[in-house]
Design a binder for these strands. Structure first.
Length: 527
DNA sequence: CTGGAAAGCGCC
DNA sequence: AAAGGGCGCTTTCCAG
């Protein structure tokens, strides 16, 4: 039992329950409006950080144990785990929660050991906790003026576009309502309905449908423009400033470490893993992510990490050699699949080859590829067949992964993180198809997640050890973002690149690209 | 008034 | 018969 001095104006008690196996940790704010039980290590860490205390000695986190044992549950919160494991409904009583936390920790720890997952826990998931806590606390600086100016500008643009749409359509309706929009487009304006749309359901007005219609009609074209502007405005330009922390003036996300089926992190409140980058308008939003005076942002990302892992796992000769030589992998696939000499590869070949390369990782069908490239399904089928004819190792990898998945009804990452795939034996071809694509994708996506987590742990350790003032602030699956004092740019850049590149030996090299800039848009590479 | 489903779309 | 893996947020719409 350990008590922490109360903050002025509030009595705060932090109690460590030193169960031999578990430390159930919870803080009780005296304010009865905030009776708050903390039973995950990151929340405890953040609370203690705010009090200027270090968190040491926590070795059991029931949430992380539960996640490792089966990452496919949608929630690993104490109440849900207690219900699943003990069929016990928590009353909300703090002491009860503490007791359950301790018992769960002991039980789950045992199961994690039995499942052979303790190494992943101790070397990856648990050490990542304080790293994420520090990242969340650091937050990112936002230029509010940039967003405020954008907001009024986009407001006007939305206004203009919606008036135009109503004018041209001849009806006043809510463009944001797919139902009303569909009614206007397909029933009032009599535009051709998409060949396929949900049986009995509403007709799709999704982007690919509207793009088709936009070729012949002004209204869908304007709707697409309106949608882009209104999406970016409501989701980012207007939402982000509202989430600025009043104390720090910065944006502090929450990383969920037990939220995805593959081992990836997710980010909420706000989600900083889906900040726009694709369009020019989107990049303007990125420009609002800035560094403090005297600092710069440094971004480092793994180039094509999933394809490299495909090469590693499959040991496909062509793929492995190409990555070792540092070839342009999409150009290689273009040459192989389309039978064009490397010298003759143009941008269109490369674009199509890129779609094929990514599609393989996701289990793309001839139908899907045809739709994406706007070609005949027969032709798409030929491309996919040509791909597997050339990359024989990839075919074997997929087949053996599926075999193993059918045997174990689960798949694993390089480090042993497991994902159950129960539907792999389903008699429903639809469900089985989903399961098969999942089975092939998860080892790739999940291993990439494991690798960047390991790099994060090592980079954080180095920042601490060298007492550097640079802070890791964001992770976006294959990218890390740091805020770095100008005096530390070169050493930190070198260190980050080295740690990411050498995170784990593989049969192909990992390529890391880094950029430095005053904002998240201007990350000029190889400055 | 609230909660949740569905549609849609931002990112890797 | 469906048709590309993994997320989170906003809006609409409808049921309770």
């Amino acid at each position: 039992m350990m008590a922490i001095s109360p903050q002025p104006g509030e009595a705060l008690a932090v109690k460590f329950d030193f169960n031999p196996v578990a430390q159930a940790l919870y803080a009780v704010l005296k304010d009865p409006a905030i009776p708050k039980a903390i039973h995950d290590a990151k929340a405890a860490m953040r609370l203690l950080m705010s009090l200027g205390t270090e968190l040491t000695g926590v070795s059991d986190d029931p949430q992380l144990y539960s996640y490792l044992l089966n990452p496919t549950y949608s929630s690993h919160r104490l109440a849900d785990v207690a219900l699943r494991r003990f069929n016990h409904k928590l009353s909300g009583d703090i002491a009860e929660a503490a007791d359950v936390t301790g018992r769960l920790a002991a039980d789950l720890r045992h199961e994690v050991e039995q499942a052979g997952l303790m190494k992943v826990y101790q070397e990856l998931d648990l050490p990542l906790v304080p790293v994420l806590a520090r990242m969340e606390e650091a937050g990112v600086k936002i230029d509010g003026k940039v967003l405020a100016a954008m907001s009024s500008r986009l407001e006007r643009e939305c206004d203009v576009k919606s008036k135009e749409i109503h004018q041209l359509a001849g009806f006043e309706f809510n463009i944001n309502s797919p139902k009303q929009l569909g009614d206007v487009l397909f029933n009032k304006l009599n535009l051709p309905k998409p060949v396929k749309y949900g049986k009995g359901k509403t007709i799709s007005t999704a982007v690919d449908v509207l793009e088709e219609l936009a070729l012949t009609h002004e209204v869908p074209k304007l709707v697409l423009e309106y949608r882009q502007v209104s999406k970016l405005k409501s989701t980012y330009v207007d939402a982000l400033p509202a989430l600025l922390d009043s104390g720090t003036g910065r944006l502090h996300t929450t990383f969920n470490q037990a939220g995805t089926a593959t081992g990836r992190l997710s980010s909420t409140n706000p989600n900083l893993q889906n900040i726009p980058i694709r369009t020019e308008l989107g990049r303007e939003i990125r420009a609002a992510f800035i560094a403090e005076e005297g600092n710069v942002l440094l971004a480092a990302d793994y180039s094509q990490i999933e394809l490299r892992l495909l090469a590693h796992f499959s040991e496909d000769e062509l793929l492995v050699e190409a990555f070792r030589r540092g070839d342009d992998i999409h150009a290689l696939t273009a040459a192989q699949v389309f039978g064009v000499p490397p010298m003759m590869i143009d941008a269109e070949h490369r674009r199509r080859a890129k779609a094929v390369n990514f599609g393989i990782v996701y289990g793309l069908s001839p139908f899907g590829l045809a739709q994406q490239l706007g070609i005949e399904q027969r032709e798409a089928k030929k491309f996919i067949e040509a791909y597997f004819e050339k990359y024989k190792g990839v075919r074997k990898f997929i087949d053996s992964t599926l075999e193993q998945a059918r045997r174990d009804q689960s798949v694993k990452t390089l480090f042993g993180r497991v994902r159950p795939i129960p539907d792999i034996l389903s008699k429903n071809p639809n469900m089985r198809g989903f399961a098969e694509r999942t089975a092939v994708n998860t080892p790739l996506q999940g291993t990439a997640a494991d690798l960047i987590k390991l790099a994060m742990i090592r980079i954080d350790a180095e920042l601490q050890k060298q007492k550097l003032r640079s802070k890791m602030t964001l992770q976006v699956h294959d990218e890390l973002v740091f805020e770095v004092p100008e005096t530390e740019i070169e050493p930190v850049r070198e260190m980050v690149l080295e740690k990411m590149q050498n995170v784990h030996p593989l049969s192909v090299p990992l390529l890391v690209e880094a950029g430095v800039g005053k904002n998240w848009r201007d990350m000029s590479f190889d400055e």
